[in-house]
Design a protein around this nucleic acid. Structure first.
Lengths: 134, 134
DNA sequence: TATGCACCCTCTAGTCGCTAGAGGGTCAAG
DNA sequence: CTTGACCCTCTAGCGACTAGAGGGTGCATA
């Protein structure tokens, strides 16, 4: 049905910027489409589906390399999806670790901010905490 | 006492890489030290204190620009430290927002991973969830 | 004294995932 | 036939480093 999209239409349909699409083509994430007589990129349904996949995975925080891996796995429909599960789990674990790190950080900052007497810089506990004990 | 550090000693003392110290000098975050006859950087106590401040602030997740701002504020010891408080608060809030974003993401990934039947890719819910509904 | 090795120097380019800009060409509506 | 929105390529920039090439220096040891 809806074949032959310009890069702008594809961008609109997937919530991606035009420049980003060209970038994905450049790094080999999205296959290069055919060109019109005037050298415009002409995308098909396959591109739309592939880019949607990419966007969704990126929105979930997967790296470009992970997206590449997931797409490679998705293309072998007869194989086990345990490898897919592994990638997703690794990513989820990395996010959980990052959350833990940031939570610890926020706690430290809370303590720092609470200790601020809001007087002069000379006796500011925040500056003091950042400076060495000397 | 312990004056005249080579870049390597300073790196060791602050837990910073040598290249990073040179980078901080290049971007004007750490003042350029004197040079020895053989063109080696020779650091003093002031550099050690300043770099320690930078490291601590960076470890707490402040951006280079924020570190620059904090150091500028710290240098005016007679002024109010409310500006310091503001920078710290902005940063803390940004971190809290990032934690919220990542938590939502981790939840989505949990749901995705739970739905995986661990069969073939063809009926893998993870791939399905990434692909468009078509 | 020679040699080796750890350290230092500068300069450049790479990382990640885009984003922005210059300097053009194309297409469709009014 | 002009205007404005779109398209093209190529290059450089972001943040915060990191890595490498290609060279010089300083000290200990054989």
């Amino acid at each position: 049905m809806s074949e032959k999209l310009t890069i702008g239409k594809l961008a609109g349909a997937t919530g991606t910027k035009v420049e980003t699409i060209r970038y994905y083509e450049q790094i080999g994430l999205l296959p290069a489409p055919a060109r019109s007589a005037s050298n415009y990129r002409t995308y098909e349904g396959t591109h739309l589906r592939r880019l949607s996949f990419i966007r969704r995975a990126r929105d979930l925080g997967f790296s470009i390399d992970q997206v590449r891996e997931l797409m490679g796995l998705a293309d072998h429909r007869d194989q086990s999806c345990i490898a897919v599960d592994v990638v997703a789990n690794q990513h989820r674990d990395a996010i959980r670790r990052k959350i833990a790190d940031l939570t610890a950080l926020a706690g430290e900052l809370d303590a720092l901010i609470d200790s601020c007497s809001r007087n002069t810089v000379a006796d500011c506990r925040i500056i003091e905490a950042l400076a060495p004990s000397a």
